[in-house]
Simulated assay, not measured.
Amino acid sequence: MSKTTAATAALTKAGIVFDLHPYAYDPDAPRVGLQAAEALNVDPSQTFKTLMAEVDGKCVCVVVPSDGEVSMKKLAAHFKGKSANMMKVPEAEKVTGFKVGGISPFGQRKLHPTAIDETAQLYNIVYINAGQRGLLLSIAPEEASQFLNAGYVDLMAE
């Protein structure tokens, strides 16, 4: 497993402080984010998954707790759209340059409009995919938000 990914290289180049946390990736896990949290013995609500979605056909990146579900209505509203849906796997991999299960909001081929669930602000650090299956990074939420030019918003389904 490489410790240098497009995500870690982008953060390092920007001078952002983070720590790496490798874990045993289980490709058969029903929910990869929950499996990662369990493997690292971290609270699932502090472990964030990166999802790629489309709002009115435009690509957006969403960073939300691994133990929650995104409200498509809230997502569309945040990006001032009418409808939102999850991007299909091949398209998500193409636009990000990462494989599903290893998609990071950092170091994607292009910076897409990004939203981070507001609960990230509850923690001094959050765990987010580092751009490779089986590798998370811990980062201050404020650093992540600034790097991604992302706002905090309530994105979770009730």
Rank of each mutant, 00 (worst) to 15 (best):
V126K: 00
Y123S: 09
T119F: 10
F18G: 08
A7I: 00
S2K: 07
E38K: 15
Y127Q: 02
K88M: 13
G68Y: 07
V42K: 11
V42Y: 00
A76K: 08
R133P: 00
N41M: 08
A140C: 08
Q35E: 14
D26Y: 02
G101T: 15
K94L: 14
S45C: 12
P22M: 11
T119I: 12
T12V: 03
V32L: 09
G33Q: 09
D28T: 14
I139G: 03
P105C: 04
E142W: 05
T114S: 07
D28P: 01
I116K: 02
A120I: 01
L135Q: 02
E38W: 04
E38H: 10
V42F: 06
V95R: 05
V95L: 03
A37L: 10
A29V: 11
E142K: 15
S104I: 07
Y127E: 03
G131Q: 11
I125H: 12
D154C: 07
Q35M: 12
Y123G: 03
G68R: 15
D26V: 02
P65E: 08
K74S: 04
L148W: 05
M86K: 06
V63C: 05
D56P: 08
F147P: 00
E143T: 09
V42L: 08
V153Q: 15
F147N: 07
P141D: 03
I128C: 04
P113R: 05
A150M: 04
E118M: 12
L20K: 04
G33T: 05
Q35F: 09
L136M: 15
Q146K: 15
L111M: 12
N41I: 09
T47K: 02
P65L: 14
T12W: 10
I16W: 09
A144F: 04
Y25W: 08
T119Q: 07
A115F: 01
G107S: 13
C61D: 02
V100L: 08
A115G: 01
L75R: 09
H21F: 12
M1H: 04
A14N: 12
F147W: 13
G134S: 11
D19A: 12
K58S: 03
F18S: 02
E54F: 00
D154M: 04
Y23Q: 07
Q121M: 11
P65M: 12
S45H: 15
